[in-house]
Simulated assay, not measured.
Amino acid sequence: MKISVVIPTYLRPNDLARCLQALCNQTRLPDEVLVVIRDTDVETKTLLESFNLTPFPLQTIIVNVPGVVAAMNVGWDKTQGDIIVSTDDDAAPHSDWLAKIETYFLSDQQIAGVGGRDWQYQGSHLKEEGTPRTVGKVQWFGRVIGNHHLGTGKAREVDVLKGVNMGFRRAAIQGLHFDERMRGMGAQVNFEMAFALPLRRRGWKIIYDPSVAVDHYPAQRFDEDQIHRGQFSAIALSNIAHNETLALLEYLSPIQRIIFLIWAVVIGTRECPGLVQVLRFLPSRRFLIVRKWLATINGRWQGIQSWLHSERAAVVPPPGVFEHSNSA
C-alpha cells in the first residue's frame, strides 16, 4: 500500500518547514509528498528548493487559482498512492501518524476515510480543552458537530473529518473531487464536509481516532476568513453558511432538508445564528449578533440558490465495488 501526502500552503514557509520535518520523522514514511503552492508565493518556492534531502520524493505543484479547493484538487489528481492523506502547513503530525492511518485502511476494505485529533496550540499552550462526547457528526436535523480538536477516547465512525488531519482510500473516491462551488478565497470552510458526506451517503465508513494525531499551530490567514482567528467578517461568515447549506442540502433527505432550513432560520448556532440565538445574545453582543445573523441569512439563501442551480457530477462507488490494489 502506497501513501501520498498533500499539503496546500500559502505564504507560511516557516510553518511548512516544521510540517515537512514532522513527515521526515514518521515511523512509516510517506511514499511521496506533494506541496501545492500559489504561483505568486516566492518565499515558499525558495524554501522547497532547499528541501532536497528528504527521505521521500518531494514534489512542488504550482497553481494560479486561489483557495484550498483548487489546490487540493490539483494536488490529489497528481498523487500516485493508494491512500491520499492531507494536512495543513501549520500542523506537525505525530511520528506514528501515517503508521496508524495505514493500519486502519489495511484492516477493513470498507473504510473510505481516516482522521483524528488536531491538538491546537497557541504558542506552547493548548488553545482549548474539553472532552466532548460527539465528534464529526451531522445530526438528523442538519446540525453539524465538529470538535475534532477535542476528541478523546476510542475510535468511532463519523460523518466528517477535518482537512488538517484526514486520509482517504483512492478506490473509494474515484470520480469525486473537492467541490469547486465552495466559496472563499483561501480556507473555504466546510469543503471537507462537502467531500465526505457523499461517501457516507453511499455507505462507506469514515473513522475518527483521537490517537491519529497532529499538533496544530493555527497561523495567519491571507484571505477574508479571519473568523477562526478571532476577527469577524461578514463575507467570511456568509461563505461559511453558504458552504454548509449547500453540502447539507445535497446530503439530507427531502424531509430532513425542510427540517434543517427551519432549524437554521429559527435556532441556528453561535457561529451561524438563527432568531433564537439572536435573542439569546442580543443583550451582551448587540450589533455584532445582528451582523452575524444578517451574514448567515445571506449565506443560507445563496447556498439554497447554489443547490437549486447546480448538480454534482461525481459518482461515488459503494464499498466493495472496486479492484483491490496489488501495490506493496
Rank of each mutant, 00 (worst) to 15 (best):
L294P: 04
T54E: 14
P57V: 06
R229T: 06
A22K: 06
A92P: 01
N298L: 15
T79S: 05
E32F: 03
L176S: 04
G151L: 01
R201G: 04
P57Q: 08
F56R: 05
V138H: 00
T79M: 04
Y104H: 08
Q256M: 08
R38P: 02
L249T: 11
V33N: 00
P317R: 08
Q120K: 10
G203Q: 09
V164G: 01
R221D: 05
D88S: 12
R202T: 15
L98S: 01
G115A: 02
R286W: 02
I61S: 05
D41I: 08
P66M: 05
G167S: 02
D82F: 05
R18D: 08
L199R: 01
T269M: 09
L34F: 09
F195C: 00
R221C: 09
G320C: 12
A234S: 15
Q122S: 08
I255F: 13
T44S: 11
A172V: 01
V189I: 14
I111R: 02
R170Q: 07
N14A: 11
L294K: 12
D223Q: 13
R38Y: 09
R300A: 06
N239Y: 15
I227W: 06
F168N: 01
P318E: 05
A213H: 03
A295V: 11
D215F: 01
R270Q: 13
A328F: 12
A155M: 03
E224L: 05
S50M: 11
V278P: 11
E102I: 02
D31V: 02
P13I: 04
P198C: 05
N239W: 14
S211R: 11
L34N: 06
S325N: 08
Y251S: 07
D159R: 02
F195P: 00
I101Q: 03
P317T: 11
Q226H: 12
L261S: 11
G142A: 07
L34W: 08
F178Y: 14
L161Q: 00
G81E: 07
L106I: 04
V321Q: 14
A234G: 12
L150Y: 00
S95G: 01
A313E: 15
V68P: 00
A264Q: 09
G136W: 14
V164M: 07
R300I: 15
K137D: 02
F222Y: 15
V265C: 13
T152H: 12
T60V: 15
S4N: 01
D88F: 10
E323L: 14
R229V: 05
G153I: 10
S86H: 09
L199A: 05
D82N: 11
W119Q: 08
F178D: 03
A187N: 14
A22G: 10
Q122R: 15
L237E: 09
M166C: 04
R143D: 05
S4G: 03
I145Y: 01
G203E: 09
Y217H: 12
S284K: 10
I259P: 04
M166V: 06
K162A: 09
I83L: 06
T131H: 10
A70T: 06
L249Q: 10
G115F: 00
G67K: 00
A22D: 08
F141A: 10
H242C: 14
S107M: 07
L199F: 03
A17W: 13
S327W: 00
S310N: 15
A241M: 07
